[in-house]
């Protein structure tokens, strides 16, 4: 069961983003591993959607880690300590270490952001953006696009089935697949443009272009305490990053 929402979506997204920034700046495998085990893993387990988030992270990160290991593990010309020489490829200690550090960092990047995004209530995020006075056009685009994605995917599937019923056969070659894609995409785009045209008239009729403040029907989940927390967190991480870069990276 999804957990009860305590924090505002902006607070959660900003915390996740700043955690990624910290991991990138410190850039030590020990820190990446610690964040993965002490922050990401508990957050996933407490999210109430542990299986879904774990599966999503595995699908997104898994292939990338395998690719990284094969690429740097076998092809790292800068590597000097050779473990295995295969002729066309060499397994080096440096290559494997590079793949491991990059893999850990990438896992933290995807783990933190996916956990934050998959526990996020998009409607709540859009409402928060409205309450905070974000650009109304941006709020419309984000809210509308997120709502449209499943509809477009569903309509695409329906058109594909309809075209297959009319005799569309997808062959093995690239031209055949592109023809199939065109047969699905064209009616999909025409339908969506007709919808967009109707939406255009409806928005204009309801004063979308007017420059007056917007009203959200959802209550604002932001609090002065969270606003202060976001400012302090940003300043704190900014100061830490600056100090770290000056003291550790540049010296």
């Amino acid at each position: 069961m999804p957990r009860r929402r305590i924090y505002n979506p902006l607070t959660e997204l900003l915390t996740a983003a700043l955690l990624v920034v910290l991991v990138l700046v410190v850039n030590r495998w020990e820190v990446s591993l610690a964040v993965l085990l002490l922050v990401v893993l508990p957050a996933i387990l407490l999210s109430g959607r542990a299986r879904r988030i774990g599966l999503a992270i595995a699908i997104v990160v898994g292939p990338l880690l395998i690719s990284s290991l094969l690429l740097h593990g076998l092809f790292f010309p800068e590597g000097e300590r050779i473990l295995l020489d295969l002729g066309f490829a060499r397994v080096t200690v440096e290559g494997l270490a590079f793949a491991a550090v990059m893999g850990l960092r990438t896992s933290v990047f995807a783990g933190v952001l996916l956990t934050a995004a998959m526990t996020l209530d998009i409607a709540d995020l859009v409402a928060t953006m409205t309450h905070c006075g974000w650009n109304r056009k941006l709020v419309f685009i984000v809210g509308s696009a997120v709502g449209l994605i499943p509809q477009v995917a569903l309509r695409g599937e329906q058109i594909t089935r309809a075209q297959q019923a009319r005799g569309l056969v997808v062959g093995a070659g690239l031209p055949s697949r592109l023809r199939a894609l065109l047969a699905v995409t064209t009616p999909l785009v025409i339908g969506l443009l007709v919808d967009a045209s109707e939406r255009n008239h409806m928005l204009e009729a309801r004063g979308f272009s007017a420059r007056v403040p917007r009203t959200s029907y959802r209550p604002d989940s932001d609090t002065p305490g969270q606003r202060l927390f976001r400012i302090l967190l940003t300043l704190g991480v900014g100061a830490f990053c600056l100090t770290w870069i000056v003291l550790v990276v540049l010296t």
Binding site: F140, A145, G147, V189
Partner: peptide
């Protein structure tokens, strides 16, 4: 503006 969400959804769906 109304066509932009459509483009974004198409990018992801296609």
């Amino acid at each position: 503006l109304v066509v932009m969400p459509l483009g974004i959804a198409l990018n992801i769906a296609i």
